[in-house]
Design a protein around this nucleic acid. Structure first.
Lengths: 146, 146
DNA sequence: CAAATTTCAGTTCCACTGAGATGG
DNA sequence: CCCATCTCAGTGAAACTGAAATTT
């Protein structure tokens, strides 16, 4: 009962954000794991489905995933034939990564799962409050990477 | 230039939260590292400074740190004489952890650092907006652990 | 007996670093 | 020569699991 979190912690925005983020992460990884995927897989497939084929370096920039992790995650996706890797005819340093039809179908399934998780996370907020939260977070994000 | 993050990602609240959380985490770990500490150290010292001596199990519950990590982190703090470990006279299973005067001074320093990081993170928001953000996050958090 | 505490060993995910090889 | 790309190997924080030993 005296095991509540210290007020000095619980009132700090960085702590609140990291706690909510951890909760979101739990919901997300659980839901994705049930479909056989991890966060990196969804992010990479989203970038490919939305903006088309790209080199691995560009995928890393689009998704914010580290160059090393891009390699490993694409290996996993390629093993399942969800993406295909082929040499770039215009630049021999690059691989061109393309999402396959199976990858596209898989991505649609994952995206639906993600949409459901959003709703689960934001359950206690009204629609207007959700918009407010998104707007504030978006501004913070813009400021810290510009 | 075509390396912007996919809209399907960038509009999802879970993604926004995790990105802002990652940014907060970067600011925090950098600032703490400059003072020779990690997040676990601050959390444990905060719990001890605010609510007094406790067993390791109780510290874990207060701070949300896993029982295994509590052991390792307290070892590090004890090595630097910031906390002291002594057997509980009332229950031989327990250790009683107490913050030392040096630990208290160190914690005050860390807490000031943390306060500065809050300001850095929330720079783009007005005072009213910060309150709104904190209120929304607090409600989300309350809902997902009750 | 069941339950709690401390501890150790190991795992997973995420973010990151360093270095080598190839090519522009 | 310098820079970008791909890849491998490895680090480190954070959250967690399983199991053993001790004590209540």
């Amino acid at each position: 009962m005296t095991d509540s979190t210290p007020a000095l912690l619980a009132t700090k925005p960085t702590w609140l954000i990291s706690q909510v983020s951890a909760q979101a992460h739990r919901l997300l990884t659980q839901a994705l794991a049930a479909a056989g995927a991890r966060g990196y897989h969804y992010r990479l497939l989203a970038a490919l489905a939305e903006a088309g084929p790209a080199s691995q370096a560009r995928l890393g920039r689009r998704t914010g995933i580290d160059r090393s992790d891009v390699v490993a995650s694409l290996n996993e996706l390629a093993d399942r034939s969800l993406v295909s890797r082929s040499p770039d005819p215009d630049d021999a340093r690059r691989n061109v990564i393309t999402i396959t039809p199976a990858g596209r179908a898989y991505f649609r399934r994952l995206d639906q799962i993600l949409t459901n998780v959003q709703d689960e996370l934001l359950t206690p907020l009204t629609s207007a409050e959700r918009d407010t939260l998104v707007a504030l977070l978006t501004r913070l994000l813009k400021h810290h990477d510009g």
